[in-house]
Design a protein around this nucleic acid. Structure first.
Ligand SMILES: NC(=O)c1ccc[n+]([C@@H]2O[C@H](COP(=O)([O-])OP(=O)(O)OC[C@H]3O[C@@H](n4cnc5c(N)ncnc54)[C@H](O)[C@@H]3O)[C@@H](O)[C@H]2O)c1
Ligand SMILES: NC(=O)c1ccc[n+]([C@@H]2O[C@H](COP(=O)([O-])OP(=O)(O)OC[C@H]3O[C@@H](n4cnc5c(N)ncnc54)[C@H](O)[C@@H]3O)[C@@H](O)[C@H]2O)c1
Lengths: 211, 211
DNA sequence: GAAATGTCGTGATTATTTTCACATATAATT
DNA sequence: AATTATATGTGAAAATAATCACGACATTTC
């Protein structure tokens, strides 16, 4: 609950910085400039410097940033010392893909359990994660504060209510439903169909090159 | 290539409006107000009115918007009369999930073909979409302007170069690699690990309720 | 060790987006 | 027909974000 004055736009870029610094560190790189970072992650170098500056003077003039130092800094800022446990609801096409992905590789985020209503899926282990019946959710989910929602549209609202009742604090919602939650619950929507359609729209209406 | 003065933030919301209007229309609803829309899709009502106003006066004071009229308007604005054909590269966990999803349900967007390097996958039909060998991409992809990229990190750059050579105009990139393209190619990144980590960060650092 | 080079951190500016708030027009009600 | 309720469209203000551009200082070179 620290400094609440960091712009949201900056906050959203932090994981990106963190991951790239991790790469550099693994490669044994010792220093990096905002210009280099900029080219790799396609964010303007002034924006990067500004972003970093919200946390104080992390670099050295004429030198750049010390990778290890910066990485350590972000590690603590992003609370990478503690693992965040996440539950996934709806082990279908998308849900299965996520369970098979190792989010812990770059972050200390771990999908700890999954829930589904399909008898076929209950009891399975998918990507190392146990799948429980949705009826058991209320008991089992205790202590977990983040949920990934990948159920069908028709179930989105009901399951959301349950999640809220179970005390969940954040939901990463992949359904196209704009779910309703109390104002102390945070929802981030990832609306894949909208993203695809928006890309198509931009292609047709916002010509690049010589804009 | 019409009016280029619509704010990007607005453009990104258009598909959202379109989909919801479609729902309303299917339900037989005849009129809708910006307030109702706002509650359903969680966008401030003033923002909605402003967004619509970029296209002219689409509503009626004291009444709201005529669903059918508005829908028709967005249909042409979003070019829903013509189908956009898309190719998907990398039929793995994520790729398979997308192939099994019917994007055409709400948009006129269709995944027409997929490519993979895995002999096991080549020749299969996944979600009604044929999977071809990556070697055939250059020939087969002709005429397609949008690609969904779901290959492993290690392949992202090479495949991107190929896509660019093949004349692709837009890429929806799901790999964490910030791919490099000529400036007339548009890339939208969907970085799922970053999204998840950002949500966790916001939960810890941006308390809701009484902000 | 002096000069040249490189890069940060940031004040100031500009751009973009959201929100307020109300005049105005239509619809519904009595 | 008059009155009341409703909801748009938008000028103006506020909030947020990106970018410019440069002084200051560390590093590197000669
Ligand atoms: N697959 C995609 O590419 C894609 C794209 C855009 C949006 N989406 C959205 O993401 C969501 C999931 O998509 P999907 O393709 O994985 O769907 P899916 O049908 O493959 O999976 C849904 C899963 O949820 C389970 N489920 C159903 N009711 C449940 C309940 N009450 N409690 C718990 N689990 C329940 C089902 O058994 C199934 O396993 C949908 O809302 C869809 O609209 C998916
Ligand atoms: N699955 C997730 O939840 C998830 C989450 C975040 C990011 N991502 C990213 O999305 C991408 C895809 O993830 P995934 O889990 O589906 O991986 P995956 O390994 O399951 O699938 C990758 C597919 O690409 C194919 N492929 C490999 N080399 C190829 C080539 N040269 N040409 C064509 N096809 C090739 C493979 O055969 C495989 O089918 C990765 O970059 C991953 O980092 C995935």
């Amino acid at each position: 609950m620290r400094q609440n004055k960091i712009p949201q736009a900056t906050a959203k870029r932090l994981p990106l910085y963190y991951r790239y610094l991790n790469n550099l560190n693994r490669q044994g790189k010792k220093r990096v400039s905002s210009k280099e970072l900029s080219e790799a992650i396609k964010v303007d170098s002034a924006t990067i410097r500004r972003d970093f500056s919200y946390f104080g003077a992390l670099g050295k003039k004429g030198y750049g940033y010390n990778v290890e130092y910066l990485l350590g800094f972000f590690r603590s800022t992003l609370d990478q010392h503690e693992t965040t446990e996440v539950a996934l609801i709806g082990v279908g096409n998308l849900g299965t893909a996520f369970l098979n992905y190792n989010f812990t590789k770059n972050n200390n985020i771990q999908i700890k359990m999954a829930f589904d209503s399909d008898e076929e899926k209950i009891g399975q282990i998918v990507g190392g994660v146990p799948v429980y019946g949705i009826d058991e959710m209320m008991e089992r989910i205790e202590g977990i504060s983040v949920a990934i929602l990948t159920v069908p549209v028709s179930e989105a609202d009901v399951i959301t209510e349950k999640l809220v009742k179970a005390g969940i604090e954040g939901i990463l919602n992949f359904t196209p439903v704009r779910i309703t939650v109390p104002e102390d619950v945070r929802v981030h929507h990832i609306d894949l169909a909208v993203e695809l359609q928006a890309l198509v729209y931009f292609l047709k209406h916002y010509p690049l090159q010589s804009k």
